[in-house]
Design a protein around this nucleic acid. Sequence first.
DNA 1: AGGATGCTATAAAACGTTTTACAGCAACCA
DNA 2: TGGTTGCTGTAAAACGTTTTATAGCATCCT
Lengths: 344, 344
Amino acid sequence: MRPKLPSIQTVARHAGVSIATVSNVLGGRRAVAPELAARVRAAVEELGYIADGAASRLRSRQSRIVGVVVPTLANPFFGSLVAALEVAARADGYDLLVASSADDPVQEAARLRALLAWRPAGLIITPCDDEFAARALAVSAGVPVVVADRVPEAPGFDVVAVDNAAAAATIGRHLVEAGRRRILLVASAFSIGNVRERAAALRREVAGTGVELEVTEVGHDLAEARAALDQRLRCAPLPDAVFALTNILTLAAFGAITARGLAIPQALALVGFDDDAWMQAVTPAVSAVDQPVGALAAAAWARLVARMAGDATPPLEVRLPCRVEFRASSRAEAAPAGPGLCAA
Amino acid sequence: MRPKLPSIQTVARHAGVSIATVSNVLGGRRAVAPELAARVRAAVEELGYIADGAASRLRSRQSRIVGVVVPTLANPFFGSLVAALEVAARADGYDLLVASSADDPVQEAARLRALLAWRPAGLIITPCDDEFAARALAVSAGVPVVVADRVPEAPGFDVVAVDNAAAAATIGRHLVEAGRRRILLVASAFSIGNVRERAAALRREVAGTGVELEVTEVGHDLAEARAALDQRLRCAPLPDAVFALTNILTLAAFGAITARGLAIPQALALVGFDDDAWMQAVTPAVSAVDQPVGALAAAAWARLVARMAGDATPPLEVRLPCRVEFRASSRAEAAPAGPGLCAA
DNA sequence: AGGATGCTATAAAACGTTTTACAGCAACCA
DNA sequence: TGGTTGCTGTAAAACGTTTTATAGCATCCT
């Protein structure tokens, strides 16, 4: 019923050669007489032939697919990560099979199974919690796995993540030096290693400085986080600094603070993890930790390529430094009087 | 060298049955004695067997893959679109092969070819320009294609898009009624049908009202758009309303306007296409056209499912209404004194 | 000159699955 | 009772490739 796509058979007949010759021309594995090669290429062109990747993989037993699992593509951080991975993958001739777990371990496992059905050459995963290790091991018999942007409890995987501790410590020092005395740490979920690392580093940094550290766990959802923060900012004592651990939480905090009429940075400093375009455009611009998505993707891909090439050395943990963008929202001195003057 | 995954052979031997029986148990196509079925299922469980999707597709000639091409996953609009598509696809037992074109027709064609190599059952595409039609037709011999969120020139595809004209007209009326007299329309690229539709509808709406309409084309890139707008806002006559046609351009406009110290909405109203989370959180909140991503994805998927099921009726064009979120940034009266000093 | 040696084209096997065709067997009906 | 029917299990073919083995044919060397 559908007009069948041309197969290698069709091309071979059309060019008057055997299918092996067509395969050799296209794959470039063995020498073919120039004249025959030209005929084959002409036939390919004319028929619009595209080799069936599945059949090819089946026979050659080497896969040009890499599976990617992220919590959600709706978050631009993961979107950018996947976009960067795709560029790297394409450069090496791989295709990406993308799936998202919706921050649900059950769905994550299901996606993983579905991905494995395509016999990918490797997997790059941002697990949605830390018990991931066991599940993946059970399921991914022998397929190289690189964990990106997360730090699973159990070892056994290559990990490419960000130096959370250093970044959080920098922020902590910055806030303390700016004279902040009461920091509110807004975390998504402590089931995520990143979050624990950031919180721990901040706690360590402010320890002994007399700064009070309050921690709140508000989940991943913007609306819920916003509601929680609205609530918190209605009660004394108000913090004089807010450190939000994701871009979404930073947005929630920014909204809650300005809606409450609290002046940033005079009444309250605001710093976020995960720099996003809007943070530079608002007034005052929001200080943020810029996670190097591109570098993260590149490093993860490099690790995976090494593994796919047979590297059997013990699992590696790569940590990439973050750049902290200090902007107006966390300045110690009085902020510039108003929007108009900023540009002046 | 890698520990081979178990094949249907392995399972069959392990359960003491033929491979056909295993296939029948798993596929549920023919009746199998309960006792044998149980043995098979036990073996599958024990070995962690996952059927090879490629081999399965090859033989059965029916694909459970759908290819998706978007301009970029880094834009949360497309990220959300893909996320929503993935949910719909999974519900019907399909996997998504995602590729991005980086707004480049050449790459788009390349991605399309790569996708076709996996013999997808269908394609959902957001083309990056309007000459897409010919290329896709040439290349996608007989594979159903649904165009999402874009309106290609040439017919021949199912199209699921947004009612750009209605939304833009609503915005136009709103601005005119609010007494704005000089509207600056910030467009990305007129090679995109959406952009032309929006611009045309706005032009139509303000025609004869004495409102002056200025149009500028600034591309897709945030930094470049910002630079262009910075430049424009340095010159008289200043517009008293800005209508930006994408979320990125809205951000660029918001940044340029506030950096220049122009008060929103007193000096200048701002309205954007493509509502984004930050638009509600900033002060003043930015009015925006909310594109129904979820509905868009659902409609596109429904169309594709119909086509994959063999529907051969003429191409359909589905238009989904947008909700316009009127917020403080485009109010006629003085903005509320409220939250920040910015607004004062 | 004649056997060894490259070189290139092809036939056939193989990959892991689904499907088709058939075989065995019990039940059924006249 | 003997043939038809229905049910269930299996062998074998098929899907579109790549790979291996083989065959044909020059060329080279002695």
